[in-house]
C-alpha cells in the first residue's frame, strides 16, 4: 500500500481505487497449419501449456512411423492400431518427461519398442490367416504372386517374432526403419557396438530359420 493510501485509511477516508480493465492480450490458438509448421519441441511446450491440438500435430507427424514400427511387431493391422494408440497415449501422459536431449522421434521409438515388447511378452505371437491383410487381386497370376509374397512375408514375420527382444527390436529399427546404429543404441539404451552385435546375431538366426523357404539365396 502506498504512503498516500495508508494515510487515507488512517484518516478514515477510503482512497480512490482505479480499476483498469485491459483487453485480453492472449494470442488466438494457432491454426493446425501453423502448428504443423512448428518444431517438435515447440509443439511439446504448447501441449504442456494445455493445448492438446499441438499433440494432434505431433500425431500427424509421427503416426505413420509409429504405426509401421508397431506393425512389424504386431501380427495384425488391428493390433498395430491398438499399439500405436497406446504409444501416443503414453507419450502424451509422460510429455513433461521428454527432456529434449534426444529427438522426439527417438523418444517415441523408445516408448513404441517398450510397448510392443511388453505386449509381445504378455501375448505370444499368433498365427495370422493369409487372407487377413487385404483382398486378393483380380487376376489369377497376380493372386498367386501375391499369395507367394504374403506367405514369404508371414514366414519372415514369424521368424523375427521368435528372436530375443533386443535382437528383434534392432533388426526392425535397422532394416525397416533404417535408423543409424547410434539412434538404435539411444532407443534401446545400449551401445553402438551392442547394436551391431545384436544385428549380427539376429541376421544369423534368421538365416538359419528361413533357410529352405525361398526367402534367401537369391
Amino acid at each position: 500500500m502506498s504512503t498516500r493510501a495508508a494515510a487515507c485509511w488512517a484518516g478514515g477516508i477510503r482512497p480512490e481505487w482505479t480499476l483498469t480493465v485491459a483487453a485480453s492480450t492472449d494470442p488466438p490458438p494457432p491454426s493446425p497449419e501453423a502448428l504443423a509448421a512448428l518444431g517438435d519441441r515447440a509443439l511439446v511446450r504448447i501441449c504442456l501449456e494445455g493445448r492438446p491440438e499441438a499433440f494432434d500435430a505431433l500425431v500427424e507427424r509421427y503416426q505413420r512411423a509409429v504405426y509401421r514400427l508397431c506393425r512389424r511387431f504386431a501380427p495384425a493391422h488391428e493390433d498395430a492400431l491398438d499399439l500405436s494408440q497406446e504409444v501416443f497415449l503414453r507419450a502424451f501422459k509422460g510429455l513433461d518427461r521428454f527432456r529434449g536431449d534426444a529427438a522426439l522421434s527417438t523418444w517415441l521409438y523408445r516408448i513404441a519398442v517398450n510397448v510392443c515388447l511388453n505386449r509381445a511378452a504378455a501375448r505370444p505371437p499368433r498365427a495370422v490367416p493369409l487372407d487377413a491383410a487385404a483382398p486378393l487381386a483380380a487376376g489369377e497370376e497376380d493372386a498367386a504372386a501375391r499369395l507367394e509374397r504374403r506367405g514369404r512375408r508371414d514366414r519372415v514375420r514369424a521368424a523375427i517374432a521368435r528372436l530375443p527382444a533386443r535382437q528383434r527390436a534392432t533388426i526392425i529399427l535397422r532394416v525397416y526403419h533404417e535408423l543409424p546404429h547410434e539412434e538404435i543404441a539411444a532407443v534401446l539404451g545400449t551401445t553402438v557396438g551392442a547394436s551391431k552385435a545384436n544385428l549380427f546375431h539376429a541376421l544369423r538366426s534368421l538365416k538359419r530359420r528361413l533357410s529352405g523357404d525361398g526367402t534367401e539365396g537369391r
Binding site: 503416426q63 494408440q85 519372415v156 533388426i171 532394416v175 534368421l206
Partner: peptide, 23 residues
C-alpha cells in the same frame, strides 16, 4: 543375403484413410 531377403519383405501399408482414422 539375409539383409536383402528381409528388405524384400514389404511393409503392410494400410489404406490411406487409415491415417485419418488413427489420428
Amino acid at each position: 543375403e539375409a539383409l536383402a531377403a528381409l528388405r524384400d519383405v514389404p511393409d503392410d501399408e494400410p489404406s490411406p484413410l487409415a491415417w485419418d482414422l488413427l489420428a
